[in-house]
């Protein structure tokens, strides 16, 4: 590194003006090889966050999804080819730079051997795992910014 990177600043409350073009349309229904991940993001007082935007990065896909007025997000994702998880950047008003987390689709026991989970305290690993829903390709994953159930965020 020869030059210091430009500083990050919050997306603020009105990011949809600039970021909507790349947002996935929430009405999309998953094709057979895709999964729907949905959930709610909460602040430190357990209030849903209506102005957050998620970016799911995997080895074969980039998907952006913003939360709605109730703090819910919906993302239709293809299963990653070479990994078991999606890297997830979350931007919002109130965060000067995005947080980085990971989401695994399914029960944490399935991912016991995963190296990225080994450094995560065992009692917090479930915050990175999306629960299988009623239908086969449907997962739910809530994110908590703070509190007892605070999601694990990674250094990056």
């Amino acid at each position: 590194m020869k030059f210091i990177p430009t500083g990050s600043q919050t997306v603020g409350p009105f990011f949809s003006i600039g970021l909507d073009t790349l947002c996935q349309q929430p009405a999309m229904s998953p094709s057979p090889d895709a999964v729907l991940v949905q959930g709610t993001i909460f602040d430190g007082e357990n209030a849903p966050i209506p102005d957050a935007v998620f970016e799911f990065w995997s080895d074969n896909e980039f998907v952006r999804a913003a939360t709605n007025e109730d703090g819910n997000f919906f993302a239709v994702l293809k299963q990653p080819v070479n990994s078991l998880y999606f890297d997830v950047l979350i931007f919002m008003r109130g965060l000067m730079r995005p947080v980085l987390t990971r989401v695994y689709l399914g029960d944490e026991r399935t991912f016991k051997e995963e190296t990225s989970l080994q450094r995560v305290p065992p009692e917090r690993r479930n915050t990175l795992c999306a629960r299988a829903g009623e239908t086969k390709n449907h997962f739910s994953w809530d994110v908590h910014m703070q509190g007892d159930r605070e999601t694990v965020f990674f250094e990056f």
Binding site: E45, I49, Y85, D87, G94, Q146, E150, V152, F153
Partner: peptide, 22 residues
């Protein structure tokens, strides 16, 4: 002010491996 309820409160966890993203 809005960082108070939204900033992660617990220490960040180090990632052992490079980010797998494409």
């Amino acid at each position: 002010v809005s960082s108070k309820k939204r900033a992660p409160a617990r220490p960040l966890v180090a990632l052992p491996s490079a980010l797998a993203s494409f």
